[in-house]
Write a protein that binds this DNA or RNA. Structure first.
Lengths: 230, 230
DNA sequence: CTGTATGGATTGTTGAACAATCCGGCAAGG
DNA sequence: CCTTGCCGGATTGTTCAACAATCCATACAG
């Protein structure tokens, strides 16, 4: 064994992690736009003019264009050559594919969660959060809690990539929500169903939980499709 | 029914598709870089200097930066503030997550493919393509055929979003392949195993097919992890 | 009502400029 | 010998101004 000189124990600096790496102007611009879009301040179909965004953020057109490229890859925004960028409009086909994907993958999370008390507890917590928000009539918060519930479900699979897919998928779903102006009808029915799912899981009735989840997803898809062509 | 004036039959122009939608300079630049990276001409860890790329493609720095933003979102390239962009280095943790995801999702494709003769035929075709390439000693082609096999498998799920996830996932896997310089040892063992999987499926032995697939994925993961820390 | 000009607005792309930051080497000091 | 601090060149981050290409709305003619 080579005689290594006594150095600073590497463990001592291991926890520092990438020093928060700051962020560039274009990333901050992308963050700001992303927030505005997912919060519904920028409606689907709305055009984002380079000059206007640049002026609003106090940055240059070129930097705005960099942010647009990133958001375009994320699917929050659509870029058409020589026409500009528009907040993404979710089509019926998108909704169908989104729910097909969810029906395919969320059951995997359900089975993964079954033998993990901590995950079950996390799910229960999001359900109570949804119930609280529902009592307060804060339907946007109910919708968010619903998303967190299903995101937590997928998390149990332990796959980062799958998690990121669902982050993107739920962001798209928020775009669909944004064009439906009956938030209560949209979110209220599902608070109880999430509760039933988690109770089935806690009781070890995996099959019943999966059936309930599948029914949930089919109903939600039908409801959104119906609301979409108003 | 409204009296619609006799127009050009829509079928006649249906094949034109979005007029090739052309593409901007930055998209073409991204395409070129993407091709170079996935084909292994640009090795992981290699730095892409703005000025050099701009000069090589005959375009301006700003346009190159737009392309970089897109590639960065795709995960082919890593962008570090004030340091530049580098061809993505796949870590051991990445490999673990990639194969965890594959073991989770590919069985879904296997079950979907079972009652679809056309899909089984498509799989068989990729296996024979791999066998032909193997006999010719073209190990890069064997690797591609392997990827096509598993991509086809996932396709059977019918989810575009899942398909896109795997496109990205396989692009990352190619980055891992690029740093391993024993292509034969890397790809040869799996030609036969894919063949066995598809034969199990064709024989209606879904469980055996799943078991073989799972074993395939575990072995491949272990092999890549071993080759990665050389 | 359909088709065709026309002009203004917007996007696509470039080149140059400058500040901020990083990197490598080199000297000073223990 | 190893560390530390400092310097200068190279590279990135960002802006600005300019121009061509393209789109869009409007007006006009058939």
């Amino acid at each position: 064994m080579v005689a290594v000189p006594a150095r600073v124990p590497e463990d001592a600096v291991a926890g520092l992690r990438t020093l928060s790496g700051r962020s560039s102007t274009s990333e901050q611009a992308a963050d700001a736009l992303r927030r505005h879009i997912t919060e519904g301040l920028l409606r689907p179909g709305a055009q984002l003019r380079e000059e206007a965004v640049a002026a609003a953020l106090g940055i240059s057109r070129n930097t705005v264009r960099e942010a647009f490229r990133a958001l375009s890859r994320e699917g929050l925004v659509e870029h058409t050559l020589h026409r500009g960028v528009f907040v993404r409009r979710i089509s019926a086909a998108d909704v169908v594919d989104i729910y097909r994907t969810r029906r395919l993958l969320e059951p995997l999370g359900l089975r993964a969660v079954a033998d993990r008390p901590r995950a079950v507890a996390a799910l229960t917590q999001t359900v109570t959060a949804a119930e609280t928000a529902a009592r307060a009539g804060d339907w946007a918060a109910v919708g968010t809690a619903d998303i967190v519930f299903h995101r937590t479900l997928v998390d149990a699979c332990g796959s980062d990539r799958l998690g990121r897919l669902f982050d993107q998928l739920f962001a798209e779903l928020r775009l669909a929500f944004a064009v439906i102006d009956e938030p209560r009808a949209l979110h209220e029915p599902y608070v109880g169903r999430n509760g039933r799912i988690v109770r089935f899981v806690a009781a070890g009735r995996a099959e019943d939980a999966c059936a309930e989840l599948d029914a949930y997803l089919r109903d939600a898809e039908a409801q959104i499709l119906a609301a979409l062509d108003d």
